[in-house]
């Protein structure tokens, strides 16, 4: 992203140079002029060509009855068959619902918490305390999901886990938190918050550091309290960052959950735990339904695309700059 922004900004002072006579060569001149920037972009472009665009050639197996032995060319073309099958399957609304609910929880609960934590950290004046807290909240980010899920399993083990015993004591009933479908989403959300909130604050803290201090001073003179300063100065100042992060987050959301969800699901909570990614793994890798699972994967990508465009559109509606 930064590369693009740099090119744009570098472009603005261009009118200072006489533009008229260079018109026919304008495109090429720009290339020559920014050649080093373009060279620096090459690795990124290569990366996308090699690892993102090229594999899409293989995505055509979603429209075929792919048998590896026959090869992609040799496999029978079946058009939308696998998509029809998936969309008419009772699994589809369930997967879509589960995926969207988990995505929404993460976007509307976990994401704002990141901002709140960043604001809180920003208000801490004692730098030793601030740094210690920052380090501590970053740590969970470096633990793998396997570790996080194992910890959860220990803490919430039925009858023996400290947290489950505590909660059982409060409610007076014994609940198997790990298998209860009603507890699946709260647990997933808790884990996500615990693991990623701290790390997510980094960018916001950077944005907060660049807020014009004079505005605060002026506000203090005008008699603004802490809340007012936060509401009227801090938040508007970091709003563009929030929007960009939100849109980026939306794009990531459908991809990140696999490990966590796969490890947390079991026979009793599968009705709420199955999402596109676990389903693709289940049908594609475990069962070898290559074409069908690719069709499911593509459908998921379309949902992701809709989410991105949706968020971007919303951002523009609220008079913010989108990312495209």
């Amino acid at each position: 992203m930064t590369a693009v922004v740099d090119v744009e900004q570098a472009g603005t002072p261009a009118p200072a140079a006489p533009p008229a006579p260079r018109r026919p060569h304008r495109g090429w001149a720009r290339v020559v002029r920014y050649r080093w920037l373009l060279v620096m972009m090459l690795p990124g472009i290569l990366y996308f060509l090699l690892f993102r665009i090229w594999p899409m050639w293989g995505a055509q197996i979603a429209f075929k009855n792919y048998v590896p032995f026959l090869g992609i060319q040799g496999s029978e073309w079946v058009g939308w068959h696998h998509f029809q099958e998936f969309f008419s399957n009772p699994d589809f609304p369930r997967l879509l619902g589960n995926t969207l609910i988990l995505a929404a929880l993460s976007l509307f609960v976990a994401f704002p918490l990141t901002i709140v934590l960043a604001l809180l950290l920003n208000e801490v004046r004692l730098s030793v305390l601030k740094r210690t807290v920052q380090t501590l909240v970053y740590i969970p980010h470096f633990l793998s999901w396997t570790v996080v899920v194992s910890l959860t399993a220990l803490l919430f083990a039925i009858g023996t886990g400290p947290l489950s015993s505590f909660l059982d004591g409060l409610t007076g009933t014994e609940t198997n938190y790990l298998a209860d479908p009603d507890w699946f989403r709260p647990l997933i959300l808790l884990q996500t918050i615990w693991k990623s909130t701290g790390w997510g604050t980094i960018i916001f803290l950077a944005a907060l550091a660049s807020v014009d201090q004079e505005q605060y001073e002026a506000a203090v003179i005008d008699g603004a309290g802490r809340w007012q300063r936060t509401w009227h100065i801090t938040l508007p100042a970091i709003r563009p960052t929030i929007i960009v992060m939100l849109i980026l987050q939306t794009g990531e959301i459908l991809n990140t959950g696999f490990e966590q969800i796969y490890l947390m699901s079991n026979a009793l909570n599968r009705t709420v735990a199955d999402v596109f990614d676990t389903y693709v793994y289940f049908t594609g890798i475990q069962q070898g339904a290559y074409s069908y699972s690719t069709a499911v994967g593509l459908s998921k990508a379309i949902v992701g695309l809709v989410l991105i465009f949706g968020t971007n559109w919303l951002a523009k509606r609220f008079n913010q700059q989108g990312i495209f």
């Binding site: 590369a3 590896p68 994967g297 998921k300 695309l305 991105i308």
Partner: peptide, 26 residues
Amino acid sequence: RTRRLAPLALLAVGSLALAACGSGGG
């Protein structure tokens, strides 16, 4: 260029990793 690629890239990110290994012939 990066901008135009963004939606495409997303589609690719989402589509199955399997597809990547599937390009071999028989």
